[in-house]
Design a protein around this nucleic acid. Structure first.
Lengths: 197, 197
DNA sequence: GAAAAAAAATGAACTAGTTTAAGACTTTTA
DNA sequence: TAAAAGTCTTAAACTAGTTCATTTTTTTTC
């Protein structure tokens, strides 16, 4: 049976790690909720208790916190085929410290906490899917937190540019600075310098 | 049936997330290998392909990389009741970029790649265990990589001190500097300053 | 328990990245 | 399509953290 485009995308993503029967696919899809967020609108804000984890089918979002001085620190940009949300709040039911804001009109599929738990009961294979998904995310976070400490800002910029060429031209320089962990002014200097080389 | 002390520790750890029958416990234990590492010896070195993931029953290790200039960057200190290894190399079979060195005489339980995979086949509940374990690790890594960027070295030191009071007096100031991401000289200055306050 | 090796402290000169401020360029909105 | 708002650039003065060199203290080793 032919699936809707957005559903096909999420099934393809899941199928990278586990095999689902047609029935399981249908059941899985029935547990998802479609969400749309317009550019500049929030998918969620700090203080809220996260009710959903999301898969992005179209668009781009930035996930960030504000420090005591109100300075934003972006922890990730999420585009098509990425998973996003605040797992800490989703798991613990504590208020989130994150904002998630669309930088383009964005479409997502969300799974609620109740359905996430139901999923594991009904289709235990999903424990495996999430085990592998989290394992892979962990590997890339460990790598990133290591680089955050051992590389200079210029090196982190060059790294980001070569690793995410598809993301870099969809975001502002200011947001990139908030991700790299420097001021927009210094980001501007670095880009001028690197382009001159 | 009464278990050996070290086996009891790992079973207690696993039992925080899943319930095992006596038979499953016995089977799990049979898949583990006991390992001892003397202070200053390596559990593994960069260039090797990781064959095991480890659970620590006694002692302390540091997990680190060397950058191009040969400067060490410690990504974690692992003590009793922690899991350690290089998951990236364990998963991908690519050579590791990490060294793991004992800072005290250390005892561990290792699981080989073959047994790790066997475990999921024989006792699928372990998918759930690792799903939750990785999910929790991910939450704390995300938090750490965020702090690495938004806090000053002094704030990171104060944070570490209050979060890991049990670890801080088991490691050298030099190793702490390599973890915080600063030079030993600057670490020394910070400690003098913070103690004066 | 003395000698050697490693870790910690201190200080002066340096560099990567910040702050503040002002002007030029781009995008959004009415 | 003009005005407003936001983004980017440039530059000068500043600060957090580094580098290098030396001395003191602690730990390891035989």
């Amino acid at each position: 049976m032919k699936l809707k485009h957005t559903h096909q995308l999420i099934i393809d993503n899941v199928s990278r790690f586990i095999d689902l029967t047609e029935l399981e696919k249908q059941r899985y899809i029935s547990l998802l909720t479609e969400v749309r967020v317009k550019k500049k609108d929030f998918l969620m804000q700090a203080g809220e208790i996260t009710k959903y984890e999301y898969f992005i089918t179209k668009g781009c979002l930035k996930v960030y916190t504000l420090d005591e001085d109100g300075v934003p620190h972006i922890s990730m940009f999420a585009v098509e085929d990425y998973w996003t949300g605040d797992m800490a709040s989703f798991m613990t039911k504590e208020p989130s410290r994150y904002f998630i804001k669309a930088t383009e009109d964005t479409e997502l599929l969300g799974i609620s906490r109740a359905n996430y738990n139901l999923l594991f009961q009904e289709i235990p294979k999903f424990e495996r899917f999430y085990r592998i998904l989290y394992q892979k995310s962990l590997i890339s976070y460990i790598r990133r937190s290591n680089q955050g400490i051992s590389l200079t800002a210029e090196e982190r910029y060059i790294e980001f540019k070569s690793k995410y060429p598809n993301i870099i031209n969809r975001i502002t320089q200011k947001d990139l600075a908030a991700y790299i962990g420097i001021t927009p002014e210094f980001m501007s200097k670095i880009i001028t310098k690197v382009n001159r080389m």
